[in-house]
């Protein structure tokens, strides 16, 4: 499968979004709303629940399955208040010593006037800084589209897992093609050049694990993902905090080392 085919597959509306993974993996889920500053962003669903018998905080980007849901979820494009809600829940997780799981599936942070007026750049920047030293394990999973800074704001983590047909890119192939070649129809060329597939990212040491998808239902994929998360957490939970944070810092320090 070509890179652009994967992009289209990652975006396909039949592909499950954040809420599916939350519902299938987590029991007794309690959703929490709002950033306590401005409003509640429907593009990000967050709360607590059990992963098997372990309480976790889970934060998921959700695109919505039908027209009404999509509008409510702003097509999965978070606003500053979404990132601030996520950070609030992460700080809460730190306080109560719960691991954090982030589910990433978004074409990117919302590019509207209100988002700029309320500090989209600052909201992302604060998450990057704070997640780097959050004193509890963080696992980020890219399940569909990992769109640029808007995805990065939930993926400063101890472990990044990608589904096989997920993509993660600094810019959309269409955006890249239209800037570089003034032709968004060259998106397939751009997708190849950007090297944005899960396997590419695994080779670049950005993704730590890739979950296979071939010949499997989304239920099976999600169950395998859950096993992987449990395995990662059993290791991370016993690590002394200083060691965990040093490892997290070095993970990003060493990506593409000069």
């Amino acid at each position: 499968m070509g890179a652009y085919e994967k992009v289209l597959k990652a975006r396909n509306s039949n592909r499950p979004s954040g809420a599916f993974f939350v519902n299938r993996m987590i029991t007794k889920f309690v959703e929490f709303h709002g950033d306590r500053r401005f409003s509640d962003d429907g593009a990000i669903v967050g709360g607590i629940g059990f992963l098997n018998d372990m309480p976790v905080t889970i934060i998921a980007m959700e695109r919505g399955n039908d027209v009404n849901e999509r509008i409510k979820r702003n097509f999965g494009c978070p606003s500053p208040e979404g990132y601030r809600k996520a950070l609030r829940l992460m700080k809460q997780a730190e306080k109560f010593n719960r691991p954090v799981i982030c589910i990433i599936n978004s074409s990117g942070a919302y590019c509207g006037m209100g988002a700029e007026e309320r500090g989209q750049g600052l909201a992302i920047a604060e998450n990057l800084m704070e997640m780097m030293t959050l004193k509890t394990p963080i696992i980020s999973v890219v399940t569909g589209e990992g769109g640029s800074g808007g995805a990065l704001a939930l993926s400063v983590a101890d472990s990044i897992i990608m589904l096989e047909n997920a993509v993660y890119s600094v810019i959309s192939p269409e955006g890249c093609a239209s800037i570089l070649w003034k032709d968004s129809a060259k998106a397939d060329e751009a997708a190849e050049a950007l090297k944005l597939t899960a396997n590419d990212l695994y080779n670049f040491d950005v993704a730590d694990k890739v979950i296979e998808e071939e010949n499997m239902s989304y239920d099976e994929i999600c169950d395998n993902l859950k096993c992987e998360i449990l395995a990662e957490l059993s290791e991370l939970k016993d690590m002394p905090i200083d060691e965990l944070l040093e490892k997290r810092y070095q993970k990003y320090r060493n990506i593409g080392k000069l």
């Binding site: 992302i124 990057l128 800084m129 780097m132 810019i171 890249c176």
Partner: peptide
Amino acid sequence: MQEGIYSLMQMAKVSGAVK
């Protein structure tokens, strides 16, 4: 963008050092 995901990851790397 010519450095793909590496360029995106610089944001996290620098933010870690700032923190």
